[in-house]
Design a protein around this nucleic acid. Structure first.
Lengths: 125, 125
DNA sequence: CTTGCCTCTGACGTCAGCGTCAGGTTTTAG
DNA sequence: CTAAAACCTGACGCTGACGTCAGAGGCAAG
């Protein structure tokens, strides 16, 4: 991340972004609506993305999977786009980190619970 | 779990179940609608639960938190209610267990990603 | 030129686990 | 006996990340 804008870079259209990241075209448009992506536009109005948009979308998916909302992701974007952060953003990073850790603990407890049941049902078929 | 129905047991009403498990009364009614709980009824129509309903609700919450749907939970209920299972149910248990494990791996990756950002933003304030 | 694929802008639909309000009955406390 | 608290049955609302459909324009190939 933190990619320097290169004016000679080959721009890609929305379909290539979607295929590259393994999401739908609709999803990519949605990310723009949420302020996560701000592509250029061709004279005819088509969206034009830089190559790294694919990596960004993959990253968004990872954060969504971790339970962050679009709003939270936009609030945290400056943290690795610009490398500049204020105290509020660093605090938010920690809060989200702890939320994720707590969720991991929950899931491990649930997994262990299922493992118990599996062990029992395997010995008492 | 696997509690033997005891006819001399003191039955409790929905509010006590909800408070005991830390959920809303609405949630407990919803669980019944989904087939997770089947309380008796008083002559006037009020729901009467056995004591272990509280533990059941806590368990439902744990499974919900792990990403299982109401339907899945109902399908798996016989596994520890009766202790009797067929091959399909044991297969489902494994599938859900693997889903949870995959989710844990995802979350750990996301957490590590945030940890990197935190480390960077802490050294470059 | 036209065929066929890609893209555009709205805008409504979905799903799951509840929240919430309405309007009425039941149980409990004083 | 009475008032408050708890319970009942519908039934609509909410949230978030998209799916999906409609109708129309854009673009390289033959």
């Amino acid at each position: 991340m933190s990619v320097t804008p290169d004016s000679t870079e080959r721009l890609i259209r929305i379909g290539e972004v979607a295929r590259g990241a393994g999401v739908s075209v609709r999803a990519v448009r949605y990310y723009e609506q949420q302020g996560l992506l701000t592509p250029e536009r061709s004279p005819s109005g088509q969206r034009l993305y830089r190559q790294d948009a694919i990596a960004m979308v993959r990253f968004f998916q990872q954060m969504y999977a971790a339970g962050l909302t679009s709003r939270r992701i936009t609030e945290l974007l400056p943290c690795w786009e610009a490398g500049h952060t204020d105290a509020d953003q660093r605090a938010m990073l920690r809060v989200e980190r702890e939320r994720i850790q707590a969720k991991i603990d929950e899931l491990e407890a649930a997994r262990d619970r299922l493992d118990q049941v599996i062990a029992i049902t395997d010995t008492h078929p």
